[in-house]
Design a binder for these strands. Structure first.
Lengths: 118, 118
DNA sequence: CGGTATCCCACAGGATACTG
DNA sequence: CAGTATCCTGTGGGATACCG
């Protein structure tokens, strides 16, 4: 039951490439946070901006475009009476569930550790 | 069993903060990759550089210092006869196991998806 | 080998203002 | 409200050279 602890060389090489690929699309300061905000439910532009603290309109606009291009988010324009634009996570974004959970859990643990140390 | 799919508002807010904290320390292009490389086994400076494709000596040097400061990596200098420096992941780095697995798995899935599309 | 020093630049991303 | 336009800065990070 110990062979799980140390990665084999092959696994390491593959893992390096895969994590590289992952970071390429979901890396950066904001992408995952925007996705998290939208997983709570569809949101309009300004709602996202309020939810994701610190993001500027310009940056959010860019992130949404990239997220849409990569299939994580869908932009929905309601053409009925009051024209409303809202953003929705796609089912592909759901595939990130484990990543988000793992990162969130680890972040929580880490924050507590840091607080204890200071 | 459906309440798992949509995050509650509280969870969302907490998750946003936690993921922010996590990305603060392990975000960026290289940190996780250096950790992965070292999880395979202790390595010397140039070995790491060869394993983590594309990283320059200057950047690797900086990353190792930060990783050491944050308790993920230990720098070991063997003072015996042939002076050798090697780097080792700490047990704290092991707490990232789930994050690394999730990211690696997702990266693999995503790569395959992209390849299928083109 | 294990780095450091220097130089440099692209680009992520912040601030502010503005528009339909 | 849903963005765009402009401007600007920091810094991540590449290239190259050098050192003990």
């Amino acid at each position: 039951m110990n062979e799980e602890i140390v990665l084999g060389s092959q696994e390491c090489v593959r893992s390096l490439a895969y994590v590289g690929d992952a970071l390429y699309v979901i890396g950066g300061k904001w992408k995952l946070r925007v996705i998290i905000a939208l997983r709570e439910g569809n949101k309009r532009f300004n709602e996202i901006q309020r939810a994701v603290e610190g993001i500027s309109a310009r940056v959010l606009s860019n992130e949404l475009k990239e997220l849409e291009m990569n299939g994580f988010v869908k932009r929905i324009v309601h053409t009925k009476a009051p024209v409303v634009v809202e953003y929705q996570v796609t089912s592909y974004a759901d595939t990130l569930k484990d990543v988000l959970h793992a990162l969130s859990d680890w972040g929580e643990m880490h924050r507590n550790k840091i607080r204890r140390e200071w």
